[in-house]
Design a protein around this nucleic acid. Structure first.
Lengths: 347, 347
DNA sequence: ATGAAAGCGCTAACAT
DNA sequence: ATGTTAGCGCTTTCAT
């Protein structure tokens, strides 16, 4: 750790040129003599110079950085989204900085405010809470390009990128019909109303299985395990089909059921939602609704690089971009027609 | 998205005071008349002013931000570390920015360089590769306070915070002896030599079970599943005990084994390592070596806030801080004496 | 207690 | 093609 970091001034002095020349040589976007350029580059190398991005961003008034706020990195779906988005953005010259709210709306707000203060080019936010996060999303939205991902909050006109959750439940229902599952044996294990995706999946389920049993907890492995225990206590497990609102819940269910001696899928069937992360490797394969994460990330890149005028559409900044999920891992998914090419869903 | 963000100049003008006064009112660390302060604060509120952290950091020559580089966010142990560290640092006024390398040493280098260019106060790095990441760690170390976490690279004098992996394997061996497991039935399922923790755990294992079968893959669920398949093919599963180098491998093993009709822990025993993330909820409980993540994060906070002179010790910046793991989840862990209070291990 | 002004590191006009 | 200089937004001397 040197006392003072070397600046471009040091490099210029060492190379015997002006600051401007040094800057030009280092950024390399202006014509100049090869000799000087080489000298400057050599000096920079020798002095171990590294550009101060704070100074650059302050001067250029732009910052090729995107901030992503996730509710909780320990949710593997969010971790996978962060991973994919990072890769997609990096390929286009943007850096992704991740901030985790750890489930706290206050921490989420702090993280987003810090992004804004750091003049990020865009904010991508997976909101903690459908209503309590609204203020934070609104703040971000009024300050910079903002994209809601996977979950949308109430009454904010920021863009939204997600998957068509209701269609996902259509796929599940269709799958269960083909398997000739009795409606009375279907149980929904979902999450509370703190997020739009939880709500939409529940509603999508109820549209097909009105009156069926629903159990609401949280998007966690722990909840799946507890729900399994509860169902075992009630003696409702054998022969039933559990529709989980997320793979992580499904994995919890499976773990809980197997731990209590049930065979999955022998004694009881489990269907998931998300199709990414560990669930992709479940064994035997978990039947699940796969969100087109790559497409969602590409869409975000479009929004981020064009400033919201993506897709050749005339949609406003508050428009929704819904992508179609596909059913994977189940017998009907492999035997049936190829999954629908994911694309923006109508409506 | 307003055309131009409001600056402190706007606030000063709106409140009818000088820039200096506005700055003092907003940062609030200098004495001034309550009346003016209130006026400035009101103006700031009204204009929806948010401080530009780039300008501030540039001027103050410091930035209460810590950068964390992880090899892969989809590894739940790293995600858990990120989550814990974020919480620990936030509590002390530091913000944690996470960058994922996605398994690529090049991406890791880019991410760290970006942190350095952004003048972060410290860099915490879980290195991708014991040798290929050395250059990146060295770069960081020569530019700012740098802490290696969980994995250390060769020949760099940056501080290291981790757990005593060999002691962890002592605990495992002790556990297996108590269970009267035959040495010949013990198999190690680990990861290749790309990280120090993988290597140390393997060495720790071999110290107790020399000549035992070892299988090396990667820290992934997928590898655990494939290893299980391979063991099944070889017909070595029944009655054996599989020691995994990480919980994520253990979970893969369990998934693969159960998928092929084996009972765990009935037919075959599995022991993990890490003790955090999803494995903490495995059902029935996975016997695993728990790393004292909270203590490790607290130690990092110490290093970060004191600039490396933590622990009241006179250790140099390149010193190791090893913490003692504990055995959890297994019968002997619940029935035996309380786990050793985790503390810096000797040596 | 308040204001004027310098300057953090950088790049982009504007000269030459 | 190269040098000089202004200024991004902010804090902090240094005056008053």
């Amino acid at each position: 750790m040197p006392d003072r970091r070397t600046t471009i001034k040091d490099v210029a002095a060492h190379a015997g040129v002006s600051l401007a020349t040094a800057s030009r040589a280092l950024s390399g976007n202006r014509p100049m003599s090869e000799e000087l350029r080489a000298r400057v580059l050599a000096s920079a190398q020798e002095l171990n110079y590294r550009v101060n991005l704070l100074g650059r961003a302050l001067r250029q008034q732009r910052h090729p950085v995107v901030g992503l706020s996730v509710p909780d990195l320990e949710n593997p779906f969010f971790a996978a989204l962060a991973e994919h988005l990072s890769r997609t953005l990096r390929g286009a010259g943007f850096e992704l900085l991740v901030s985790s709210a750890g489930g706290s709306v206050e921490a989420e707000a702090e993280g987003v405010q810090a992004f804004l203060g750091r003049q990020v080019h865009a904010v991508v936010i997976i909101a903690c809470d459908e209503s309590a996060s609204a203020r934070t999303v609104q703040d971000a939205s009024s300050a910079t390009l903002t994209v809601q991902l996977d979950r949308r909050v109430d009454g904010v006109d920021a863009a939204y990128v997600g998957c068509d959750n209701r269609h996902g439940m259509d796929l599940v229902a269709d799958h269960l019909r083909r398997q000739a599952v009795a409606d009375s044996k279907v149980v929904f294990v979902g999450a509370g109303a703190e997020s739009s995706s939880a709500r939409e999946r529940l509603q999508g389920f109820l549209a097909h299985f009105p009156g069926s049993r629903t159990m609401l907890g949280s998007f966690s492995l722990d909840w799946g395990i507890r729900a399994a225990e509860q169902l075992v206590e009630e003696g409702r497990v054998a022969g039933s089909t559990l529709v989980a609102a997320a793979d992580i819940i499904a994995l919890g269910l499976i773990s809980g059921l197997r731990g209590q001696g049930y065979e999955v899928p022998g004694d009881v069937r489990v269907v998931g939602f998300d199709g990414i992360g560990p669930a992709a490797f479940a064994h035997p394969p978990l039947t699940t609704v796969r969100q087109p994460v790559e497409q969602m990330c590409t869409e975000i890149l479009q929004l981020v690089s064009t400033g919201g005028d993506a897709s050749g559409s005339t949609d406003g900044p508050g428009s929704s971009r819904l992508f179609w999920p596909t059913l994977v891992g189940g017998p009907s998914a492999t035997g049936g027609p190829r999954p629908t090419e994911a694309r923006p869903a109508p409506g």
